[in-house]
Nucleic acid binder design. Sequence first.
DNA 1: TTGAAAATCATACAAATGGCGTATTGTCGG
DNA 2: CCGACAATACGCCATTTGTATGATTTTCAA
Lengths: 211, 211
Amino acid sequence: MKTVITVAIVEDKEPIRQSLAILVDGAEGYSCQATFENAEAALDYLPTHAVDVVLMDIDLPGMNGIDCVRHLKALCPYTQFMMCTMYDEDETVFDALKAGANAYILKRSPPHKLLEAITELHEGGAPMSSTIARKIASSFYTSQAVSPELEALSSREREILDRLAKGHSHKEVANELFISPTTVRKHIFNIYGKLQVHSRVEAINKYLGRK
Amino acid sequence: MKTVITVAIVEDKEPIRQSLAILVDGAEGYSCQATFENAEAALDYLPTHAVDVVLMDIDLPGMNGIDCVRHLKALCPYTQFMMCTMYDEDETVFDALKAGANAYILKRSPPHKLLEAITELHEGGAPMSSTIARKIASSFYTSQAVSPELEALSSREREILDRLAKGHSHKEVANELFISPTTVRKHIFNIYGKLQVHSRVEAINKYLGRK
DNA sequence: TTGAAAATCATACAAATGGCGTATTGTCGG
DNA sequence: CCGACAATACGCCATTTGTATGATTTTCAA
């Protein structure tokens, strides 16, 4: 049996929307079921007319493509979402993935690549433009240089900082470790010195590596 | 000028190592500079004889491929590492990426795909077997259940909480938002009520989804 | 064993924070 | 128009926290 991959397109610019639709419909094995010029229309239609793959522009008038995916993902669990955008900015990429996007390609990709990507996506892959893929892979890399500052902490200091990070007060930590609250405060003071910060939240951010 | 991509191979099984080397050396534009049958030998040689791309098996006798990458990455910043393995287990994949691997492909990939991957890697991409790519993309997806409590926050409250999370004091936030410190404190008080917490760090933990 | 670093504790002070009550203004949906 | 709610703002109080000075004991490597 021949499997046809059903596709929907969300893109506000008329010419781009048209050419994408023609590209998809013209290729064997693909069928463009619907096109929308904004997120709201897609949210209205797709939950009751599920398709295999949605090509989603990010920069839309009104609700943006990322929020649109976030909503649709919950309503159409079997639909795959491919973000299609002009830009490859860091935050946008990660926000899209967090929202549930399964693929992220740049509009400047050649048409045949687009069709390949749709197939790959439908077969369980996660096609990404190469620069995007590199960004994502790199995001996991934490140069094992845990920042020399953290290395300077003694094990006791680390234990205390860890409990502070859980939201405990110095009194609570004192009780947990069976030491005086003053001692805990002294440790905290020393920790601040080593990490070169002046508040609890700053220390915790350094400890947990959030910048 | 023609650019030749220099490659090194770390793989303990003799026949596989040989066939990979022949594959790489036989193709135009690729040159296999060295092969190693264990991580230690690679760690010994590569820091002083950098190559463009290293194909790294994970399951090695002695030190495993992931730890090997971790060490080499610090010493050979311009070298790209491609993990080459039989398995696609979750933890292994993420550990490899955290260690600094730039690509992750399964050995069952066809030879021509391997060469393509080397090129893509060298050109700044991050080739992944499709199942791997999907795993990675999915790892970002946090079912939008942001905990109903966070939903209760107004946008102003969210903005303030976000700045607190960066380590700013209420006075600093007040200056940033051009409102009175008292107002900021009132907001913080309301935030605590909605999140059902009693301290700044607890609120931030809920906000950032750390449990 | 000797010296440095770490861990412990005390006291003190000022600033920041947590926990209220109250009030004004503006917006929005019924 | 009314009630609900968000945002703004002030004041008051008790506690926590950041900073500082000083001291004793443990630990561990040189």
